[in-house]
């Protein structure tokens, strides 16, 4: 009976792999190439490319709160760039860079970063165990007492995100996660879909925010199902 149980699980995970594979297959190689150029050189002379902050491999700079872009969903990246540009998502650093891109270029650079394998995270000091345990509890179970859904109910149990609805959080910069949650907690909406996170973050204390950020940052980041990167001419 253990065997039967195994088959069932396997079928489920195969299905998952197929679904994940499909969503990434949208990016076309020409887009990815053009996107890499934007990431490296930017689109306007005299302005740095995205790589200056997010790095060419999309790892970001976790310690200073610059998010990882590698392996995030193409549509999510594209959407966020348009929100930065329109000012719906307010950020003084990102706004000018997002505004330099037209819709086509946004899609290309999104395709590039979405196609990248998630880089191995830099070793950091492990957060204290009680903080990680508190974070895990909130991520997996939420709180019935506070009527707060768990993070996993919308971001998946392993924090891998769900399609273009919710972004992956596993292995994301703790400082970045904490900043976003604090902004939502303080009432910022960020963008139309931010309504879900606004409601969620209201129920988190500052200590909870530190705990979930530490736990999510420590979760293994998703393994990209397709790595287009290696086939590209330099």
């Amino acid at each position: 009976m253990v065997g039967a149980f195994g088959v069932h699980r396997l079928a489920l995970s195969l299905m998952g792999a197929l679904i994940a594979g499909n969503t990434q297959a949208l990016a076309d190689d020409a887009d990815v190439l053009a996107g890499r150029r934007i990431a490296q050189q930017g689109v306007l002379a005299g302005h740095v490319g995205c790589a200056a902050c997010h790095l060419e491999n999309g790892a970001g700079q976790p310690d200073v709160g610059i998010p990882r872009l590698a392996g995030l969903h193409l549509d999510y990246l594209d959407q966020q760039l348009s929100y930065f540009a329109s000012g719906q998502r307010q950020n003084a650093v990102m706004r000018p860079y997002a505004r330099m891109l037209d819709a086509r270029q946004r899609q290309q650079v999104a395709a590039y970063y979405a196609s990248l394998a998630v880089p191995r995270p830099v070793e950091a000091d492990a957060p204290p165990l009680p903080l990680l345990e508190q974070g895990q509890r909130i991520v997996e179970y939420g709180s019935a007492d506070a009527d707060m859904p768990s993070c996993s109910q919308c971001h998946g149990v392993s924090g891998l995100g769900v399609g273009d609805f919710s972004p992956a959080l596993a292995g994301q910069s703790a400082a970045y996660i904490a900043q976003q949650l604090t902004d939502w907690h303080d009432g910022s909406r960020r963008d139309p879909k931010g309504i879900f996170m606004q409601a969620e973050a209201l129920r988190l204390s500052h200590n909870d925010i530190a705990a979930v950020a530490a736990y999510l940052a420590a979760l293994p980041a998703p393994v990209s199902p397709v790595s287009v990167q290696k086939d590209l001419p330099r």
Partner: peptide, 10 residues
Amino acid sequence: GQSSGGRVVF
């Protein structure tokens, strides 16, 4: 519904 990592989320 929708899945993530091989598990149903929604």
